[in-house]
Amino acid sequence: MILSRWVSFTPVARSSSESDELFRRHSEFRGRLSSTCRLRSGPCCLKSKSSQDEELESVAGLSILGSEIPWEEKKTWSTMAFYMFCLHIPLSFGGLSMVSGILHQRHLEPQTQVLSLVLVQMVELSGTVFLLRNTAKPQCKSINFLKGNDNDNNNNNNDSNEGRYWVVGSALGLACIVGFVFLTSLVADQLFGSKAVHNSELEKIMASGEVSRSGCFALYCLVAPILEEIVYRRFLLSSLASRMEWKKALVISSGVFAASHMSGEDLVQLFGIGCVLGACYSWSGNLASSVLVHSLYNALTLLLADSV
C-alpha cells in the first residue's frame, strides 16, 4: 500500500513533445470546463433574479403605503388631538349653534341649515389643510394629499403601484361597504328588533327644495368625504402605517374614525366602513379611491332618503 502510493506520485520523465501535447490537452479541457460552468451558471442567475422579484412582490402585499411621511411621527397624536378639540368638535357639532347665534334665530330653516353646514364644513376643511401643512416637516410643506407614498426613492412601492387600478378597487370597496351595511342591519334587526332607518331630519331637508337637495349632495358627497379622507386616511393611517404593520394601523385609524362620529348605535358599521375605506387607500396608494367610495356611498344614502 505504501509502495503503490509512492509509485503513483513518482514523476515520470517525458520528452518535450509529450509535455507540449499534455499541456495543450490540459488547456483545452480547462477551456471546455470553464465554458460549461458559464452555461450552467446562467440559469442560476436568472432564477435568482426571478426569486428576488417574487420576494419583493410578496413584501409589498396588499398595502403600498410608503414608510416616509410628511409629518413627524412623534407629533401624530398631538396633531390629531388639536384637530379633534379645536376644529372637528367645535365646528361639526357646534357649528349650527354658532350660526343660530349669529343670525339670532333659534330654529334655522332647512335651506339655511344645509347651507350653513356646507359653509362650516368648508371652514373645517380649510383649517385642516392649514394645520397639516404647518405641522409638516420643513422640506414637505407642499404636500400632495392624494398621494399615499411620500418616499420618491422607494422603487419597490412605486413598482407595486403599477397595474393597481384604483377605480377597480373603488368599485370593489363600494360593493363591500353596501354588503357589510346590509348584513349588519339584518343582524341588528334580528337581535334588537326592526326600526325605522330613515333620518326624518335629512328627509325634511331634502324635500324642502332644489337648493337644499343640492346643498346636501355638495355636503355629503364632496366636502365631507374629502375632509374625512384627508384626516383619517391620508394623515392618520399613513402616519401609523409608517411605524407599524399596516393592518394594525388600519384598525386604529378606523376606530378613531368611528368614534369621531359620536354615534353609539352606528359604531360597528362606521368601523367597518372605515376599514374598507382604509383598505382601498392602502391598496391603491391613491386617496381618490377612498374619496370616491365614500362619496358614492353617501350619494346612495341620499338617494334612498330622497325616494321616500
Rank of each mutant, 00 (worst) to 15 (best):
S185V: 07
N158H: 15
G209E: 03
E201M: 03
Q190P: 02
L222C: 12
K147W: 09
R164M: 06
V178L: 13
N149M: 03
M122H: 00
N151R: 07
V223L: 03
G148N: 10
A188N: 10
K141G: 12
T184L: 15
T184R: 05
F192W: 13
L132S: 10
V211D: 04
P225M: 01
C216T: 06
N161A: 14
F182W: 13
N144V: 12
S194H: 14
K137Y: 05
S142P: 02
F145D: 03
G209M: 05
I205E: 00
N157M: 11
V118F: 00
R133L: 02
S200P: 01
W166R: 03
Y165T: 09
G193E: 04
R133A: 00
A224W: 03
L172I: 14
V178N: 04
V167R: 04
G193Y: 02
N134L: 08
V181F: 10
N156A: 13
N154L: 04
N144E: 15
Q121H: 11
I205K: 01
N157E: 09
N154D: 15
V211C: 06
L202T: 10
E124P: 01
N158S: 15
C221H: 08
E203S: 05
L125T: 04
K195F: 06
L146K: 07
P138R: 13
N154V: 01
S116T: 07
E162L: 15
R164E: 05
E210R: 15
G169K: 05
T135K: 12
N157T: 09
L115N: 11
V114C: 02
A224K: 03
L131Q: 05
H198F: 13
